[in-house]
Nucleic acid binder design. Structure first.
Lengths: 338, 338
DNA sequence: TTGTACGCGTTATCAA
DNA sequence: TTGATAACGCGTACAA
């Protein structure tokens, strides 16, 4: 594709200057109407496609946004992307999508490439599992426009869009306590950063609020994926009878679904032998043998808000840093005992 | 981000020419080792990030691929994207992802923008519903490198990667006939292009092969989404008893899932009152109340093969046009009566 | 080994 | 209203 038609080609064909062609094609006012029509016609017939690469070089603006997500097959994220697209579609931005497969190395690599491509900004859901913000801090400090969503890094000068993780986790745990009277409640957690930490805090807060025992063996630190939930649940299942929990709060639905698998394989039944709740409202949640009680996350809305905030941040230097929180709703099904 | 560090900045800081810096940074052989080290160090300390926009302008190569999919929330496509990424990740290409929401207008728009951005090639799963290939024909004729996947346009000079739609549809329909003895079989079809057409053909071929009646009222032309399946099924449900089908072959799983909803709402039971099979092997298929018998499509593999073919087409002018077919497998569950 | 000149396609700026 | 020139950041080709 090195043989593209350029402004100069059209100009030569018409006996005018490239500048005039540029003006005509960009609807500038200072072009003779007759000239403009000739140009438009010629551009059409020659199959001209404007070269945004050259435009970008001049304007230092690419109309391009890099989207970095940890797990494209986790249904939450495609839905977020749809929300992002609703916004970008109406504002001429294109999306570079990169899926990091939960690997921080791949994430750093992707961000490096995206910066080389001079994206106007980045939407990031972090896959970092360690509590070290220095990488992101220097990214933001370098002037790169970033908005975090879902798995956010707060307090480093970038806006964030997330759900009220702590509160939601508190509420769903409270539901298990209040409504069902469980007292022995375990937690299948994610890594102790970002949403993993907050959801853990919500869980702990609920137990404390009701003076329930907190048992270290009930708090498993795992990951966000199905296998992690499966493995974590296996550890719980190994617990002796007297320590066996009555209910489990999972960090998200994929993890919960993995746990359900482990429970079923152990020949136990939900919610009688053990109740379980998730977080996400995955597309599969209502379809499980025992439909999963969970926290509904408005993924589409998260994507939309994040994209809006980023574009405003890109286009206005005065835009403030915000931590935007979108509300969740409890989705009560039957895995909790209801 | 117009204040980026350039080669010239580094050059000035070091008292050398920009060219020397360029050579050092690109690991060219003809640079003094001492100079190279100084440059590398300075580049690091000044926070230099190479400008791919400028590089692309010079080289007419962007290391960028446009991916056009019709429906990002249909789980098949995220899985395809993962397959694409496995390939692009290892070859330094970035993906522009655009979701057209099954709207051909949006697709044309997206392709136009992607061409302006001078992507090196396009991976397209078409959302067109009309049987007019002229748009794609002129796209390919213009020299744009295109590989179609899943919803392909064949015979216009672009490679395609798809599953053996006709055969698979034939086989799953045969299963209903052979294994279960159904004779009155309906089809909830997609638009009559690409996979819609082929899956319809497979269905018809099966009926003909076994001398079964073909009833126009049993062939509903709909769409690929859940609502389309729901609506189509409602039409079948309105049929008088003597014309009521015993089994339904759906063009894909989302459509089948919509149909299942309609069947359940009508108070009928699957498979006793009516059997149903799909096509895709959606993540939800095994989780339905009556697990869905369907055709498993190797989405990841489709993505991988398509990306490989496109990159080869981009990098070698001599690359031939191929219609690549990846095999499916029947996924027998219980909605067929098994 | 290093530097200079030029071009990639476009637009801002100033002159005609 | 139109055109000439320079610049965006980089790499090729050639010269020193």
């Amino acid at each position: 594709m090195g043989s593209d038609v350029t402004l100069k080609h059209i100009a030569d064909a018409l006996g005018v200057s490239a500048m005039t062609v540029s003006r005509a094609l960009n609807n500038r006012s200072n072009v003779d109407e007759e000239t403009r029509e000739k140009v438009l016609e010629k551009a059409q017939s020659m199959g001209y496609t404007p070269n945004h690469v050259a435009k970008s070089l001049v304007s230092s603006k690419t109309y391009t946004i890099g989207v970095v997500i940890p797990e494209i097959t986790h249904a939450f994220f495609p839905e977020v992307v749809r929300g992002i697209e609703e916004v970008t579609n109406n504002s001429d931005y294109q999306l570079f999508l990169t899926n990091t497969n939960e690997q921080f190395d791949r994430e750093k690599n992707a961000i490096k490439t995206l910066r080389s491509k001079r994206v106007d900004g980045l939407l990031i859901s972090s896959s970092q599992t360690e509590d070290d913000v220095s990488y992101y801090k220097s990214l933001v400090d370098s002037g790169t426009k970033v908005v975090f969503f879902d798995r956010c890094i707060e307090g480093i000068g970038a806006s964030t869009v997330s759900v009220n993780d702590r509160e939601s986790s508190l509420k769903i745990t409270e539901h298990l306590i209040n409504k069902h009277g469980y007292t022995k409640i375990a937690h299948l957690g994610g890594p102790h950063v970002s949403i993993g930490q907050k959801r853990l805090e919500g869980y702990l807060e609920a137990l404390e609020k009701y003076d329930l025992p907190i048992n270290d063996k009930w708090i498993i630190v795992g990951g966000f994926q199905e296998e992690a939930g499966y493995d974590a649940m296996e550890k719980l299942l190994d617990l002796p009878t007297e320590e066996f929990p009555e209910a489990v709060v999972s960090v998200n639905d994929p993890s919960a679904i993995g746990a359900v698998k482990a429970i079923e394989e152990a020949g136990l039944s939900i919610p009688d032998d053990i109740a379980i709740v998730g977080f996400t409202d995955d597309i599969r949640a209502p379809l499980l043998d025992v439909p999963l009680t969970t926290v509904h996350q408005p993924a589409y809305e998260v994507g939309k808000r994040a994209a809006q905030k980023l574009i405003r941040t890109i286009e206005r230097d005065s835009e403030t840093v915000e931590n935007i929180v979108v509300p969740t709703t409890l989705k009560i099904r039957s895995s909790c005992g209801c």
